[in-house]
C-alpha cells in the first residue's frame, strides 16, 4: 500500500530524491519522515474519500440504467416530447371536462344566429346552423380522443396478442395469421368503412372504434410478430430455455419486454391516424352522426359555407391538425428514445 502511494507522489520530485541520496543520512531520514507526514495528512482524508465518493456516485448513476430508464432520460431532454405531451394533456382535459372552458352548449343552436363573426358571446363565431363554433370545437375533442384512445388500445391488444403468439409459436398458426393480416391489408380502408358502417345503422363512438380496431389490428400484429421473432432468436431466450424456463415465462419475462418497444411506437403514431380517420369517416357521413359533436361533422357542414365564413372550417380543422400532430410528434419522440439505432 505505501509503495503504491509513493510512486505517483514522488514521480515529479524524482530528481530531488536523488539529490537527497547524495546528502548525508540524517537529512534523508528527515525528508522521508516529512514526506510520510505529508502523505498521511493528504491521503487518508482527501483523495481516498473523494475516490470512494466518486465510486459511489458512479454506481448510483449506473444503477438507474435499464432500457426504460434510458428511454425516459432521453425523453426528458427532448422538447418535442414536452410540447406534444402538454398539448395532449390539455386535449384530454378538454375532452373530459369541456365545461371548464365554455358554458355554451354545442347543441344550443339558433338558426337566426347563423354564420355570425367573432363576438363576445361567440368568440369563434357561429356556423350555418347558428351553433357556437368555439363550444363545438372544444366538445369535438371528446369524440376524437375517445375514438383515438380506444381504437389504439383495442388494436394494440388484439394485434400484439395474435401477432406475438404467431411469432412465438410459428408454424401453422403463424402461416394462417399472416395470410389473414394480408387479407386485411388488401381491404381499402375507406371502401371498407363505407360498406361496414353503412350496413350498420348505429353511428355511436363504439361502432367507429370497433371498425377501426378490426381494420387496424393487422398492422400491429405484423409489427408484433416481427419483433417477437427477433427477440425469440436472441441467445438469452435460448439460455433461459436451457435453464428450464417454460413457455409462459419465456414469453412474458424474456420476449415481451424486449419486443414491446416497436409496438408502443407504432401504437402512439397510429393513435394520431385513428383520430384523423374518425374525422374523415364523420366527414363522409359514415362515421359519427349528430347529435354527437365531432370535428369531422363540423368540417363537412363547413364545406358549403366556408368561403363566406372561413371560421367554420378553420377552427375544427386546426383542432384536428393540432391533435393529430401532437400524437405523431409524441410517437416520434418515443421512437427516438426507444430505438437505440437512431441514437
Amino acid at each position: 500500500m505505501p509503495d503504491q502511494n509513493t510512486d505517483p507522489a514522488d514521480d515529479p520530485m524524482g530528481t530531488e530524491v536523488h539529490s537527497a541520496f547524495a546528502t548525508p543520512t540524517p537529512n534523508l531520514a528527515s525528508m522521508e519522515s516529512e514526506q510520510l507526514v505529508e502523505r498521511e495528512q493528504l491521503e487518508p482524508e482527501d483523495p481516498e474519500d473523494k475516490d470512494n465518493l466518486e465510486d459511489r456516485d458512479d454506481r448510483q448513476r449506473e444503477r438507474a440504467r435499464s432500457l426504460w430508464q434510458d428511454a425516459w432520460r432521453d425523453l426528458r431532454g427532448n422538447w418535442i416530447f414536452w410540447v406534444s405531451s402538454l398539448v395532449i394533456v390539455f386535449l384530454v382535459i378538454v375532452a373530459i371536462w369541456p365545461g371548464l372552458f365554455t358554458s355554451t352548449s354545442p347543441l344550443a343552436c339558433n338558426l337566426s344566429n347563423s354564420l355570425q363573426g367573432s363576438s363576445s358571446a361567440h368568440p369563434f363565431g357561429t356556423d350555418n346552423q347558428g351553433c357556437d363554433i368555439y363550444s363545438r370545437t372544444l366538445h369535438g375533442a371528446r369524440a376524437s380522443i375517445t375514438v383515438g384512445f380506444f381504437a389504439t388500445i383495442g388494436s394494440v391488444l388484439v394485434g400484439a396478442v395474435l401477432g406475438g403468439l404467431a411469432g412465438f409459436f410459428g408454424g401453422w398458426w403463424d402461416a394462417i395469421l399472416s395470410r389473414i393480416t394480408d387479407i386485411f391489408f388488401g381491404i381499402p380502408l375507406l371502401l371498407g368503412a363505407m360498406v361496414f358502417l353503412t350496413a350498420i345503422d348505429s353511428h355511436s363512438v363504439w361502432i367507429v372504434v370497433a371498425f377501426l380496431v378490426i381494420l387496424g389490428w393487422p398492422q400491429i400484429a405484423r409489427i408484433a410478430r416481427g419483433s417477437v421473432i427477433t427477440a425469440k432468436q436472441q441467445d438469452y431466450v435460448t439460455a433461459a430455455r436451457a435453464l428450464g424456463a417454460g413457455n409462459s415465462r419465456l414469453m412474458l419475462r424474456h420476449i415481451l419486454p424486449n419486443a414491446v418497444a416497436p409496438i408502443i411506437v407504432v401504437g402512439t403514431i397510429a393513435l394520431g391516424s385513428y383520430i384523423s380517420l374518425e374525422a374523415t369517416l364523420s366527414f363522409l357521413g359514415v362515421g359519427l352522426a349528430p347529435p354527437t359533436v365531432s370535428w369531422g361533422i363540423d368540417l363537412s357542414n363547413a364545406v358549403q359555407v366556408f368561403r363566406n365564413a372561413p371560421g367554420t372550417l378553420f377552427y375544427p380543422a386546426a383542432a384536428l391538425s393540432i391533435t393529430v400532430l401532437a400524437f405523431i410528434m409524441l410517437g416520434d419522440a418515443v421512437r427516438e428514445a426507444l430505438d437505440p439505432k437512431l441514437r
Partner: peptide
C-alpha cells in the same frame, strides 16, 4: 447476449 438486457 445470453443475459436478458431488460432484466437485472
Amino acid at each position: 447476449s445470453a443475459l436478458n438486457p431488460v432484466l437485472t
